[in-house]
Simulated scan of single mutants.
Amino acid sequence: MSVPEILFLCTGNSCRSILAEAILNGLAHGRLHAVSAGSHPTGYVHPRSIALLQQEGFSTEGLSSKSWDDLVTTPDIVITVCASAAGETCPAYLGPAPRAHWGVEDPAKAVGTEAEIEAAFRKAYEILRLRIEALLALPIAELLAKDPAILRSELANIGRLGEHE
């Protein structure tokens, strides 16, 4: 089997899904590969996302805000990262891949002082990193091949990590 492809999907593809793409690719060491896309991409990556990723030692090369219509491969797993509890509509990916929802508040919509806005980006980053580290502990390729139902259940459980911190 080739390297499993994870699609992180949100509406604008400028913050959360970009953070997740870079974090997973930076931590997976080639065992998994991530891409990100949006149903209505903003067309730019939020500068605070880039700055935070660089501060944390992740590569930002090649990151871009793109539409799910521009994907060149069909993902093996789709993870939405919109915060649907905040009234934000998450896109529904129509491909055959197992799906999970990992809702994270949109730091691009944070208001307040500079410190409060930075804290919103930091919180999104920390929640995504926690969840991605849990994802990387799973035997993804094996579960995709042998037991997609268990994989979906595990992905749903991971999506609850960091919710009440």
Rank of each mutant, 00 (worst) to 15 (best):
L71S: 00
Y125D: 06
E116F: 04
T113W: 01
E165G: 15
I79F: 00
E56R: 15
L53M: 07
L32T: 12
A34I: 04
P75Y: 03
T74G: 03
A110K: 05
I23R: 06
T89E: 13
A108Y: 07
F8N: 05
R122I: 03
A85N: 12
G12E: 12
S84F: 08
Q54V: 09
W102I: 05
K123I: 07
A85C: 01
G95N: 02
L9T: 03
V81K: 01
A86E: 14
L143I: 09
S65N: 05
K109N: 09
G103K: 03
S49V: 05
V78L: 06
A83F: 04
P47G: 11
V72G: 07
R129M: 09
S39K: 06
W102K: 02
L155Y: 08
R99F: 07
A97Q: 04
E56L: 02
G30S: 12
R129K: 15
H46G: 04
H164C: 10
A97K: 01
E105Q: 08
V111T: 15
H33E: 10
E163A: 14
L94F: 04
S49F: 02
D147Q: 14
R48T: 00
I132Y: 09
R31A: 14
H101A: 13
D106C: 10
S17G: 05
F58L: 05
R48K: 12
P139M: 13
Q55W: 03
T89P: 00
P91L: 11
G162Y: 10
E114G: 10
S65R: 04
V78N: 01
E142R: 15
D147I: 08
R131W: 11
H164E: 15
L143W: 14
R122A: 12
I6G: 02
L143C: 11
G162N: 08
F58E: 02
T89Q: 14
L144S: 08
V3A: 01
T11H: 05
P47F: 10
L138H: 13
Y125L: 10
S65G: 03
A20F: 03
V81N: 02
A83S: 15
F121M: 06
R160K: 15
A28E: 03
D76Y: 02
R48F: 03
K66N: 08
I132R: 11
R152D: 10
H33L: 07
H29T: 09
E105F: 03
R152L: 13
T89N: 07
E154A: 15
G30A: 11
L143P: 08
N157P: 00
R99H: 14
Y93N: 04
G87F: 06
R48Y: 04
K146L: 14
A28T: 02
S65T: 02
I50Q: 08
I117S: 04
A134F: 00
T113L: 02
D69R: 13
K123A: 13
S153R: 15
S14Q: 13
D70V: 04
P4L: 09
I77L: 05
L19F: 13
E133A: 12
L155E: 08
S49M: 05
A145I: 08
A115R: 08
R160Q: 15
I79T: 01
L24D: 07
L53I: 09
A145E: 15
G57P: 12
E126N: 12
A83I: 00
C82P: 02
I6V: 15
A110S: 11
A137V: 08
E21F: 09
